[in-house]
Design a protein around this nucleic acid. Sequence first.
DNA 1: CGTTGTCAAGACAACGTTGTCAAGTGCGTA
DNA 2: TACGCACTTGACAACGTTGTCTTGACAACG
Lengths: 336, 336
Amino acid sequence: MADVAALAGVALKTVSRVVNSEPGVSPELEVRVKRAIEQLNYRRDANAATLRRLGRKTQTIGLVLEDVSNPFSSELHRAVEDAARERGVLVFAGSCDEDPERERELIGSFRERRVDGIIVVPASNDHTYLYEERRAGTALVFVDRRASHLDADSIVSDNFGGATQAVSHLLEHGHRRIGFLGDLLSISTAKERLRGYAHALDGAGIRVDDDLVRTELRDPDAAAQAIDEMLALPEPPTAFFTGQNLLTIGGVHALRRAGRQREVALIGFDDISLADLLSPAISVVAQDPQALGRAAADQLFRRLDGDTASALHQVIPVTLIARGSGEIRPRSSTPS
Amino acid sequence: MADVAALAGVALKTVSRVVNSEPGVSPELEVRVKRAIEQLNYRRDANAATLRRLGRKTQTIGLVLEDVSNPFSSELHRAVEDAARERGVLVFAGSCDEDPERERELIGSFRERRVDGIIVVPASNDHTYLYEERRAGTALVFVDRRASHLDADSIVSDNFGGATQAVSHLLEHGHRRIGFLGDLLSISTAKERLRGYAHALDGAGIRVDDDLVRTELRDPDAAAQAIDEMLALPEPPTAFFTGQNLLTIGGVHALRRAGRQREVALIGFDDISLADLLSPAISVVAQDPQALGRAAADQLFRRLDGDTASALHQVIPVTLIARGSGEIRPRSSTPS
DNA sequence: CGTTGTCAAGACAACGTTGTCAAGTGCGTA
DNA sequence: TACGCACTTGACAACGTTGTCTTGACAACG
């Protein structure tokens, strides 16, 4: 900046004014400064600028995802990026792989770099450590899952409602024995989906059979194996509800391997790409990761703009998409 | 930091020493300072720190992708993140949607924030504007596509070889009329894949028929329509090579709609999830986005560590995965 | 006992920028 | 002519931190 000032023959402050398009610079000098900037290929140092500037906005936010390469996460990421871009804000993204330790590390790194706010898909079960953080002024929005032990904004899918709807759908198609495959119960969404499953069964007067419920499944293989085992039961399920996209994929694999994809029903939570091209096409309860991301970013920016209302808890609706696999009726179902 | 110093009853500089674990602080004071840091929930401002520090490394890199939510991009992103994390470096990611303007904007924003280096999947056709940039010391690595008019490091897939291999594979299965569906030819990878297609045909003594080549296709619908049109030709192709994952998806749709997925062969460039579950399962030439990202990040950090060798041009191999759709033989093929 | 060396600790400037305020210029008006 | 006013321009401190240098204490040595 000093070089630019020297080349244009003006004071530092004048260059600063031109760079920030502040008023009160004569057109003549403005031209001279701009020419010098171009000539020297100068770019203001945003870090130094925010150092002195009041309010100290870095025009930067942090985003903690489960895994940037997971389709759900990455669509959410894109929605956040788009919202941020409208405001000239850049996004730091990081994956924490369900590791609370990593979540803390990431948030720590974000804080060191003085991000204006953080959007987080939490892995941790205790967010009290963020209490001080928030008091220090960093805006914080939870997305996909609620915060635990901390009263913070959250935007989540209707996990309970969606699961209830999916299982009710299977019940309506005559199923009475429905298997449930779920993720770690430490993840609140997984717990909610299991709750929805139980609720729907309860509404139909069916007791939850522990043999038909498998949780803590983390990948397609684990899900496939769980299905193999359930199909080998004396009274096997006639339908499955898979509570997460990877588990759905594992489920499809298992049913195909057993050659029973046309007789055992399947509904998954969360849409998977190409689900419509399989035969049977896979019915799912689709979440809207873009809506989640957009709503989270909007709320974050609302906070950054000074909104101090009490914590917002927004629920984004989900949609049951009937494509075929969820509409298979049980073979031996007694006619109504 | 002043508050911490006051609370611990020491000078600013002593706190600085403790924070950076510099030697020469008595154990007693160190404990006192650490306690004060904890008590005040203090975190050093990384921006201010790098301002004064020699070398001025921000421990931050920028990543320009086509679209963070595209599976290819996001897997690449994850590999870069992992490499960065090993070094305590944070990643700014941005999508440019094939818009050169947006590419420049993003790189400009990165530069303002003084990132140590930039990894870019280029959209632009002219990177001379980055010349000054590089001279200013920002490390720059191109990935997936080469830089144009700029001698910079690049890590790319073997687009030409992969396309040649795919088309040769179709030829070996008896096809003589093979349709090509490609993306914008302004994208160098698309051009390379078309070149590979022509090369393979040429090797078999077949002239490229312009009716069977469609480019500038950007989404599944466009690809599906192109296939519809080619299938309606008097002498329709018996096989297709789709030069990009979205186009492959469109191709599958079109063939299914026409009910000809079991008689017309299809090979796609770039793997798609669930390709193995379709029937027929989709044969592809798979890229390795993780290897691309890892190699790009490694090269970037090598540059940041002071490597000044001349530009590296690394080619990552691709793999033909035969799953079924690419092994369909033409109906009316004359027996050998 | 005086000199030297070692080490802990602090004072101060500097990084690149912006906020504040003062100085200078030219114009309109009493 | 003198005054006030609006406007342009610049000098200087400040942001939160680290590099450099100085100070002071204390031990070892001749």
